[in-house]
Design a binder for these strands. Structure first.
Lengths: 326, 326
DNA sequence: GTTCCGCATGAATCGATAG
DNA sequence: ACTATCGATTCATGCGGAA
């Protein structure tokens, strides 16, 4: 970001509509065009940009500032993994754990404004260990979010399948992360059929022959009121998943390693959006969320304060698209 | 519990040293001896009981009251699963979510007093959904515990492989629970070798083809420091586990079924105690914690407010011991 | 013995309707 | 308007007896 009196300009990396001849034959990547785009007028007012300017782009800047140019209620899904407290300090400045909530909340305010009422905000986060204890900034963040008006609808669990074994004197390797699901409203858009799974092996033998109790509604013995009719399941080959996601961590290439695999945003994009919907990652990093959105034919906007990450992300999406086109 | 002026008596189910002739041949179970034991004197003072009276017993009463008779710093591990808010209301009071922290904290105070400085408190809990949102009583509990002096050392995750089916318009079924690990001190007893695992698929698929880039990349990762030793794992047949526990809930065909499998307390008992150590479950329920302790030759004390559960637990441990003796 | 197969069981939550 | 009740929804596992 460059600042010049009241005029702030952000570098925008546009992925769509890129001329075919800009492919660099030696690297196999597109050249990156830098569109210089004023976000504020000389009077310091927000430049009224048509939303198209933001569609399928990566913007280099502080999301708190850049998002001011995004209209209210315009985003269908926010999926992001913000810099964890005191981590990735080389690129993000290393937010201190005790200041984490204060650092995050002004941004959350903007997220709330731009998210559609029936949209979702999925936050991938995990508290770090400070002085031998799990720090409380994540749970304090949840409480602060609710005070702001967000609903803490669910907490999905990402089980990292392939972490290396490791141990410290007082703990083992941390193999899971939180995926906090916030919404603005009680009713929000969710397309559950899009993430259905093949039924387990148990079904084949289990459903072959049904007992008498299986054929009628059988109430739970503990009085929870939960009953079931197993005969409803005959012939079913797909089942709904649960709130635990088993996914391996993934390294994109030698230059950087992504903090989460593409399959992670893909799952939530399929679950909470439809093709053509608008997805935002305000801490875009290496651009995994945008890659997922691009693959699933959703529109995306990635914002990152680090210019190198922005270039990396734009390149990554472009080569992705090139590969898909064959 | 019966109350008579200032004298309170609790029914204590003693499992050890039971005479062999008390086996009931028709039921195959021991007869339950009821030892009536005054915990308070006529003056309302605590009866100074020798600790032996509590060893390997199940006591029917409110843990907050019963624990007043237990000396300071005398328990090595507390493992428990308290009644969740609004759940199990048939047997427990059915604590309202908004009152949960206030209900729990006086008990936590007693737990703190009786736990040895280097001991551990493992709390199995999960927040329920209220009005379409995850209620915040569990995370508020964590904050209240820290205010009391507890250290929130770790949060293990129990992935329930076979939880009750269900899907709703706004969520999938909940397949995980928290295992909050609290300690009094930064340094506590942990016997990590006791829970090591045979090398599984992980090592076969991953360790064998460790490339130079793998080693380099892990070295550069956020400074955790163990990456540099990754090649040390090659050739080992046992590895340390991580903080995700994959366990199915046990389903007994005919009798009751417990809320967690024996393997769950077993894992933490092996990790945090040695044979002969003293383990407490203040919300004993069907006695799974005590079964695990008994199997692993630790001493135990189970407390539950529900008499039927106490009888069930005592019977369960007795038949367990009988089976083991052959 | 060992494998196979039948069967009982479980910390749930939502929306509609009734009081 | 608020609260209580009720019907609808959905898998995977271990045990025990049979093959």
């Amino acid at each position: 970001m460059t600042e010049n009196n009241n005029e702030k300009t952000y570098t925008i990396y546009s992925i769509a509509n890129l001329p075919r001849e800009s492919i660099n034959d030696s690297t196999g990547l597109y050249q990156i065009p830098h569109l210089q785009m004023p976000l504020f007028t000389d009077q310091g007012e927000i430049n009224t940009l048509i939303p198209d300017e933001f569609v399928n782009t990566i913007i280099n800047g502080d999301c708190e500032q850049v998002l001011k140019a995004i209209p209210d209620n315009s985003i269908d899904l926010i999926f992001t993994s913000p810099p964890y407290a005191d981590q990735r300090s080389a690129t993000y400045g290393g937010i201190k754990p005790d200041q984490y909530v204060a650092w995050f909340m002004p941004k959350a305010k903007e997220f709330y404004r731009i998210l559609k009422p029936e949209g979702s905000f999925v936050l991938n986060i995990k508290e770090r260990v400070v002085d031998g204890e799990r720090h409380t900034y994540v749970i304090e963040l949840i409480l602060a979010m609710r005070k702001m008006g967000w609903r803490w609808t669910e907490e999905y669990m990402w089980h990292k399948k392939n972490s290396y074994p490791g141990k410290w004197p007082n703990r083992f390797r941390d193999n899971w992360e939180r995926l906090l699901h916030f919404t603005k409203e009680k009713h929000f858009k969710m397309y559950q059929e899009e993430v259905m799974l093949p039924v387990g092996d148990w079904a084949q033998s289990r459903l072959k022959k049904l007992s008498e109790t299986d054929k009628k509604r059988d109430n739970s013995k503990v009085g929870s009121g939960f009953g079931k009719n197993i005969s409803n399941w005959v012939g079913r080959d797909m089942v709904y998943p649960n709130n635990v996601l088993h996914m391996a961590t993934e390294c994109y290439n030698q230059q950087h390693s992504a903090v989460f695999p593409v399959a992670l945003p893909e799952w939530f994009i399929k679950l909470f959006t439809q093709p053509g919907d608008m997805i935002l990652d305000p801490f875009n990093g290496s651009g995994t969320t945008c890659v997922a959105a691009s693959r699933l034919e959703r529109n995306y906007l990635g914002i990152d304060i680090n210019q190198e990450y922005c270039e990396l992300a734009a390149n990554r999406i472009r080569s992705e698209m090139l590969t898909r086109k064959g």
